[in-house]
């Protein structure tokens, strides 16, 4: 089951990068807020159909869950707005690597403290070194991108 899950989320990652490229392209012409709005509306329509056929949860339970569980929607909105603003400026790779570093740092923290009832995975020395390598990666991507745009300019 675990391996299957990991493969599935891998595909999720592929689509996330594809999404940032597609939305960046659309956003250049239509605007950041407009692109995000379109993404959410089409996503809603698509999911409405999926739920009609495959939904076996209880959507009405939304009224009973703790409110903090509902607050994540603001994060989802922020994520898309920020991505759509960044991709046209710094490109797909730089945006994604930077996003990834943000993801990893918070992911490691959430695991360490077991926030939001998630599985607890403690922060050990290996993970500290990992954080160091992420900073190095960020440095290289920034330099690499700067060089590409300098070459374009000349």
């Amino acid at each position: 089951m675990g391996i299957l899950m990991i493969l599935f989320t891998f595909i999720g990652g592929l689509t996330l990068s594809a999404q940032s490229a597609v939305n960046g392209t659309f956003g250049r012409k239509a605007g950041t807020i407009e692109t995000t709005l379109l993404t959410f509306i089409t996503g809603t329509m698509f999911l409405a159909i999926l739920i009609l056929f495959f939904g076996n949860g209880n959507l009405l339970a939304i009224l009973e869950v703790p409110k903090w569980q509902l607050s994540a929607v603001f994060l989802g909105v922020l994520f898309l707005l920020f991505i759509i603003a960044a991709v046209p400026k710094i490109g797909v790779i730089a945006t994604n690597i930077t996003v990834i570093i943000g993801q990893l740092v918070i992911g490691i923290l959430i695991d360490n403290f077991g926030w939001f009832n998630s599985l607890v995975v403690p922060l050990d020395s290996k993970r500290y070194v990992a954080l160091l390598f992420m900073i190095i990666a960020l440095y290289f991507i920034y330099k690499g991108n700067k060089r590409t745009s300098e070459e374009d300019a000349s």
Binding site: L75, F82, A85, A86, V99, G102, I106
Partner: peptide, 14 residues
């Protein structure tokens, strides 16, 4: 843009 992307990543994990 880098700061925005970094914040986007933290939003994604939360």
């Amino acid at each position: 843009s880098y700061i925005l992307a970094l914040l986007a990543g933290t939003a994604l994990s939360f």
